[in-house]
């Protein structure tokens, strides 16, 4: 095990974590402001990836595709909010879980009807092809760019929330829903905007990840489950918590898969060690989540004090 390998795996973990952050940020915002649990967030990730792949395929330009992916996810988010989600704010969590579970079925099959059952493939843009030398290791330029993208969006989101009028309204909404209505803020409009913003972030993540993986129906659900783990660890409703949780989950998951089999190999035979190591590595983040919930039931950074 060399330093170069460890560095490469840490970078892989960071890249994974930051893409998880893009997913989790929208999820946690929607819960923080509207008190809504949205299982269909993974479908918005999928919509972003599909629209990006379709437009990039037609125009041959990845960046146009990316814009289209973000726009499509935001538009789908706004539409869903107006048609369905709006009716769920006053309902209990059971109804929210079910209605958004129904949305997953509808959106997944809808995308399958439009794009067909076979995966689409999206090419990495030419300017981000190849590798970059980081001293001891050559690392994929595109994956490095994903890390940059993730950090930039996190910074932008932080600026949006702390520096803009919309941000003030969002924070007010998180702490006291009645108050912002009294302040003359159009709540319906605010809710639609927040939901669309979260959807756009999910769409962005889907499009970015789609370029190195495959774009297929069902791609959003595994990421969705991980995003839930992230926001529960971080504290539901907290953007800072989502960032910390995402990086924790990304790095722990990657390093667990990398290190645990090696650890078990010191006292078990190789194939057994691979099996046990892989089993434990997949459970690691859920174990972390359970521990956090047992010792800090509201997560690491509780949103409401």
């Amino acid at each position: 095990m060399t330093l170069a390998l460890v560095l490469e795996q840490v970078l892989n973990g960071l890249q994974f974590g930051l893409m998880l952050f893009l997913m989790s940020a929208g999820l946690t915002l929607v819960f923080g402001v509207m008190g809504l649990i949205n299982l269909a967030h993974g479908s918005l990730y999928m919509i972003g990836a599909f629209c990006c792949a379709a437009i990039a395929g037609v125009t041959g330009n990845f960046w146009l595709g990316l814009m289209a992916g973000i726009a499509a996810a935001a538009a789908a988010g706004a539409l869903i909010e107006v048609l369905v989600i709006r009716r769920l704010y006053a309902r209990d969590h059971l109804d929210q879980v079910l209605a958004t579970f129904a949305l997953i079925l509808i959106l997944s099959e809808g995308v399958r009807m439009i794009f067909g059952p076979r995966p689409l493939y999206l090419n990495v843009p030419d300017m981000l092809r190849g590798t970059v030398n980081l001293g001891i290791v050559d690392y994929s330029l595109y994956r490095l760019a994903l890390i940059g993208f993730g950090l930039a969006v996190a910074l932008g989101l932080w600026a949006l929330i702390t520096r803009t009028r919309l941000g003030i309204q969002i924070r007010a909404g998180e702490s006291d829903r009645e108050m912002i209505a009294a302040l003359g803020v159009n709540i319906r409009w605010l809710y639609t905007v927040v939901f669309a913003l979260g959807a756009a972030l999910a769409g962005l993540a889907g499009a970015l990840v789609g370029a190195i993986q495959s774009v297929q129906v069902g791609m959003g659900e595994p990421v969705l489950i991980l995003a839930f783990v992230v926001i529960v660890i971080g504290g539901i409703g907290s953007i800072k918590g989502a960032m910390v949780g995402a990086l924790l989950v990304g790095v722990i998951d990657t390093m667990g898969r990398f290190l645990l089999p090696r650890f078990f190999a010191t006292f078990l035979d190789t194939s057994q060690a691979m099996g046990v190591g892989a089993a434990l590595a997949s459970m690691l983040i859920y174990l972390l989540m359970a521990l956090v919930l047992i010792f800090r039931p509201k997560g690491l950074f509780p949103a409401h004090g």
Binding site: T2, A4, L5, Q9, N12, Q15, F16, I212, Q213, S214
Partner: peptide, 12 residues
Amino acid sequence: TDYAAEIAEIRA
């Protein structure tokens, strides 16, 4: 769908 970790192992 993601082979980043495996590629790192092959490289090393």
